[in-house]
Design a protein around this nucleic acid. Sequence first.
DNA 1: CGAATATTCAACCATAAGGTTTCATTACCC
DNA 2: GGGTAATGAAACCTTATGGTTGAATATTCG
Lengths: 107, 107
Amino acid sequence: MVEYSLDLTFAALADPTRRAMLDALRGGERSIGDLAAPHAMTFAGAAKHIGVLERAGLIERRKAGRQQLCRLKADRFTEAEAWLAEWRRFWNARLDTLEALLQEDQA
Amino acid sequence: MVEYSLDLTFAALADPTRRAMLDALRGGERSIGDLAAPHAMTFAGAAKHIGVLERAGLIERRKAGRQQLCRLKADRFTEAEAWLAEWRRFWNARLDTLEALLQEDQA
DNA sequence: CGAATATTCAACCATAAGGTTTCATTACCC
DNA sequence: GGGTAATGAAACCTTATGGTTGAATATTCG
């Protein structure tokens, strides 16, 4: 269900460590170790964050020798963006209404 | 800081009850009781969700007699949408690159 | 004033989240 | 094969979250 995956997506995005990891993945595939390194926490802790991102469907991984390479997946980003884009349309519509009212006032 | 408010915003959006409340507010101001009613939980439980939305800056409230009226606030929506819109641009750019590669192949 | 309405607050409970440590597994290199 | 690098996984701790109940506080109405 869409609602359910929005839960996971937004929850995954609500953490700065995880957002930083996503940003790091914009440069292409990265191993768990690469993703973990910049963060002031244990490897295991960072790996948990990666697990959250994977369960939320924001990334996927594949084995490459003794390491695992992670890469971004688009779907859930798109879904979340679509949800928020609807809000942008809502706010725009409200602004339009306000403008119309102001114009009426001036007339 | 921006990071901090993105944390709160995404965390607030990660719950279906809260997203439903936000949707309800699209119709205009609603009291806490109005927002709570549709949800299968105690009034106090629902009020906590409203507290989360308020602390995240997604809504604000004002007293009106013995009730409190809530209404939507745009800023944090905009912020979150901007963050995700950047990702949309990222994915689009990747698609463009892929297309270019395919074209090259054909040429 | 007294009763009912709308909401807040505090205490509590169960579960999940973010982190740690420790140990096991797997794959590479010599 | 043995050592080591990269990861997985389990157990544990602390704090946050989502929910409950019950009492307290305003505010309106009669």
